[in-house]
Every structure is written in structure tokens, then in C-alpha cells.
Design a binder for these strands. Structure first.
Lengths: 238, 238
DNA sequence: GATTCCTTTTGGTATGACCAAATGAAATCT
DNA sequence: AGATTTCATTTGGTCATACCAAAAGGAATC
């Protein structure tokens, strides 16, 4: 008879990973500074370089360190952004087809719809001020498509910030990063900028009027239009 | 003068990763079957075992293969669940304190609120039927707390399924997995089950009545209550 | 003070070896 | 014959060593 699952399995690197990530969180390895040299760790921990390298690679995939090819791994405290970066490699596979992108974009619509509803119901003066400021920056950049892209993104970012949940800004960054390839191939037309700015203004107005339904509608129309533009760019039927 | 970014950086394993993931996606390495032995790949590709192992580890972290410690890596086609599993290690770090859990739980409330709104607006007969069936299973399990937990989770899962966006069920699984530790330590009382079932019923009724606002309210109250229970369990002020 | 040049350090890769667990086939038992 | 045990082989995990090219750091130079 077999003992169904042998939980004795273990990789030596796992323990090293745990040890190192503990030292990172405790601040013993301060954020931004390089990890000790592989040979040092090897000696210090009494293990082979193989295991050290394996552990470092794990940490890298977990986003706890950034490991540029021939450089020392740089420590990066675990944050929600680190979590997102851990997803990057997988996301690449899921976004190589249009339906994958669409699925991700749909979640974005859903989340931002929820965000604007929440903003319409709970935004305080500072939130409104930040939103207004972002909107005006967006307006001022209508003529400059690159700058408009930035301010557009920033405007949406404010919506995520309003939630005051640190997870959400990270998600926004992820959306920006992963959907950027689609956006960057689109033609930048001032008239499009104008339309997008108007959409942002409608969203802002609805939030100002404390009207969640109107805010959600405006947001959905805005993002659906954006999706149509993407489809047109890639010759796909909307 | 520097050439800003030297794009010459590369790890030999990266190319191997690309090659192998291509063979996986093309089906040359069929789903569920083991990857060739390291020594085979080494010879076949004319590289050292070091690089092969490094590549395999990358594939593993990307969720393209599942590599149990002393077994052959098993090919697994990339899905959204693979993406979630990539987050697991980082999530652990973020969930070791109560605020981390709360932040995650808040996103859950937000997403499920959006889901029930959507369900109230767009659910079709089959969705309603699935929801009703899940609700009845939940009701039948009020006396059995373990079974109730399962059916409770399943009921919420249906909400994610209704979106018909394959990303969301994966997110549900992630929530279930990551928040399970909190739940499992809570006392299981039939009276609590009863109350939770009633909450589910209210949500269902609101969806049936096509009333997004009522559905959202019911959902929020339900999850906020759940959170209070968690807080009480862990002696934290709500 | 900035630049160039050189030495050392360090990460990336290749080899070869050994062990314990996993695998698969042969031998054995029922 | 079919299931079980036994044993030889394969294979992943780890270690040790070596070499190279790039990075890092410091010394000599402009």
C-alpha cells in the first residue's frame, strides 16, 4: 500500500529562498541594494553555487529581486507591484491572442466600472481635486498625443487611487503595462484625443454629481470605444 | 557616450525556454506528458545540463510545466489558473498580516459587487438555473458545516462563471485558496450557516428581480458580515 | 576632476561525478 | 495468467571545479 502523498519532497533551494526572503523582509538586505555575491552566500550557507543560483532565480521570479542578466540581483521589498511582476511571464502567454487581450480588457472594464461607482459615492474633496487636476492635464495635452497618452493613463490611475486600497494601483500598473502593446500600435489622432478627453470629462462630471449609474455608463462607453479603436487597428471585427 | 540600453543581454536558458514553450503550445509536447529527460535535451540542444535545468525551472515558474521535486516535469498548457499559481509565493508574503488580508478581501467585495450587478442585468435562464441549483445545495448543507463551506464557495463561484470571462473563475479560485486560512479557523455554527444562506438567498432574489442595486447591497452586507466574523475570530476590532 | 586602463570580482556556462529516489523490467508469488 | 516483489537502470538533485566574458573597482593618466 502506498502512502498516497509523500510530503517529504523538498528542494534544497526552497529553504534558501525562505531564508533570503525573510532577510529581505526584515530589512537585513535593504531595498535597492544588491544581494551578496553567489560565492559568498554559497560559503556562508554551506551549500553549492547550484543551489544558490536556483534560489536566486526563484526570488527573481517572485519579484523579490530584479536579476538583470550579468548584474548583481537587486533587492526589492515585496509589494503588490512585485506580485504583478511575478505574473508577467505567464501573462505574456495569455495575451498573445486577441481573445486573451479581450478577456483582460473586460476585467479592466469591470473593475473601473466598479471604481467609478465607488468614486461617485464616496469620493472626498481631495479625490475630486486630484481627478480634476488629472482631467485638466489631460485636456492640456490634447494636441500632444504622447503626452495625452500619459495623462490619459494618469487620469485612470487616479480612479484606482481613490479606492485607497494599495492592491488596485498595482493592478492599474499591470493593465497599463500589459495592454500597452495594443495601444502603442494605434494611430494617435488629436480628434481621438479630443473624444477621449470628452469621455473623461463625462466620467468626472458624473462623479461630481454623485451619480454612480451615469459614471458607470460613461466609463463603459469610454472603454468600449477604446476597444473598438483597438479592433479597428488590428483589423478585427468589433 | 553610452548606448543607453545594451540589448545584447541574454541568458542562454531564455532561448531554450522559448523553444520549449513553443513546442508545448504547438502540441509537440502534449499536455500531461512528461518533458524529455534533462540529459536528452542537453544532448539534443547541444547545451549543458545547467542551462536545461535553468530553463525547466523557468517553465515551471511560468506554469507551463508542473515540476514536482524528484519527478519528471509534466507539460501543462498555460491557463489563467497557471497565472494565479505564479502569484502564490508572493501572495503569501502579502497575506501574513491582517491589513494585507483586508486589502485582498476588499478587492473581492468590489469584484463580487460588480459581478452581482452584472448578473442582475444580464443573467440568462441557464445562469439563473445554475445559481438556483447552487443555492439549494447550499440550503441543504446548513446542518453540515464542512459541506456548507463547499457549497457556499460554489455559490460564489457561479457568480464568477456568469461573467463568461475565463479570467474570473481563476480569480475566484485564487480568493478561495488565499483566504481559506482565515476561514478555516472560524467556528462553524449552523446558525451562522443559516444566516449566510439567507444572505445568499437575498442576493439570488435580487438577481432574479433584475435589481442590480439590491443585489449589490445584499452582497456587500453579506461579505461585510463575513469580515466581521473573521475579525471576531482573530480578536481584532472590526 | 574626468577619462582611460588594468586588475579583480562576479555571474553565466560547461563538465563530470555521486546519491537517492523514481522508473521500468525481471523474477517471484498467488 | 495476473498481481506482487525485487532488482538494475534511469533520472533528477546536489556538489565541486574550471573557464570565460562582462561588470566593478581602483590606479594611473590626461
Amino acid at each position: 500500500m502506498e502512502h498516497d502523498t509523500d510530503r517529504k519532497d523538498s528542494r534544497a533551494s526552497d529553504e534558501v529562498v525562505r531564508l533570503l526572503s525573510a532577510k529581505i523582509q526584515s530589512g537585513e538586505y535593504s531595498d535597492g541594494s544588491p544581494l551578496p555575491a553567489e560565492r559568498s552566500l554559497m560559503e556562508e550557507l554551506g551549500i553549492s553555487r547550484t543551489v544558490v543560483r536556483e534560489a536566486v532565480q526563484s526570488l527573481s521570479k517572485q519579484g523579490l529581486v530584479v536579476a538583470r542578466p550579468r548584474h548583481r540581483p537587486i533587492v526589492r521589498k515585496p509589494g503588490y507591484e512585485a506580485a504583478i511582476s511575478a505574473l508577467e511571464s505567464v501573462a505574456t502567454h495569455l495575451l498573445d491572442n486577441m481573445t486573451g487581450v479581450r478577456n483582460l480588457f473586460d476585467t479592466r472594464i469591470m473593475i473601473e466600472a466598479a471604481l467609478v461607482r465607488q468614486a461617485a459615492k464616496e469620493a472626498n474633496r481631495e479625490d475630486i481635486a486630484a481627478l480634476k487636476s488629472a482631467l485638466e492635464a489631460n485636456r492640456a495635452a490634447i494636441a500632444d498625443s504622447d503626452e495625452f497618452y500619459r495623462t490619459d493613463n494618469a487620469f485612470h490611475g487616479v480612479l484606482y487611487d481613490i479606492s485607497r486600497n494599495p492592491v488596485l494601483p498595482s493592478i492599474h500598473k499591470a493593465y497599463s503595462t500589459w495592454l500597452e502593446p495594443q495601444w502603442s500600435q494605434m494611430p494617435r489622432l488629436p480628434e481621438r484625443n479630443e473624444a477621449n478627453y470628452e469621455a473623461h470629462r463625462r466620467i468626472f462630471d458624473a462623479i461630481l454629481l454623485r451619480d454612480p449609474d451615469a459614471a458607470e455608463d460613461a466609463l463603459r462607453e469610454h472603454l468600449n470605444n477604446a476597444w473598438k479603436q483597438v479592433c479597428r487597428t488590428f483589423d478585427e471585427q468589433p
